[in-house]
Design a protein around this nucleic acid. Structure first.
Lengths: 69, 69
DNA sequence: TAACTTTGTCAAGTATATTTTACAAATTTT
DNA sequence: AAAATTTGTAAAATATACTTGACAAAGTTA
């Protein structure tokens, strides 16, 4: 799976560490790392929590228009 | 968890059965039923597949602006 | 350069998403 | 009304999301 660079940069834009984001979303730092690196397939609830913590929407962070698999 | 009525109605608008949607998204009919009825928390990949099958985006079907939990 | 923070990763465990099989209720079609 | 299709649901099994603990590699700050 591909890295999620949109997520990574949205977090960087807020100068927030993976640990901080993890705490805000109620999940582990390792989980945030894995999501950013595309190591697996998070649940929609986690995706929504991440979006809320970063002031973004699902389409902003988890939707890729191009890759029409 | 709440029912996903946006999904249910998007599918109805295409006159597509749960079975058809299940086939298109590579998942079981029961899984589609469970997602529509809010019985659990699907993975983002499944949500994206569903969106693609219905010609919608994640924000269309899985984002609720109001409930700012 | 040395302390400190941040990030990647791994292995073993737990929780839960998804499958399979199956049956009944509800809806639609004939 | 009967036949056929669609949907809800349930129990047991499997796959995988997520946790915990831990260590090393980068990156940042003093």
């Amino acid at each position: 799976m591909a890295k999620n660079l949109k997520l990574k940069s949205a977090r960087a834009a807020l100068d927030m560490s993976q640990e901080e984001l993890a705490k805000k979303t109620g999940v582990t730092r390792q989980t945030i790392s894995a999501v950013e690196n595309g190591d697996y397939n998070p649940t929609i609830n986690l995706c929504v929590s991440i979006c809320r913590a970063l002031g973004k929407t699902l389409d902003d962070l988890f939707w890729n228009e191009e890759e029409l698999k």
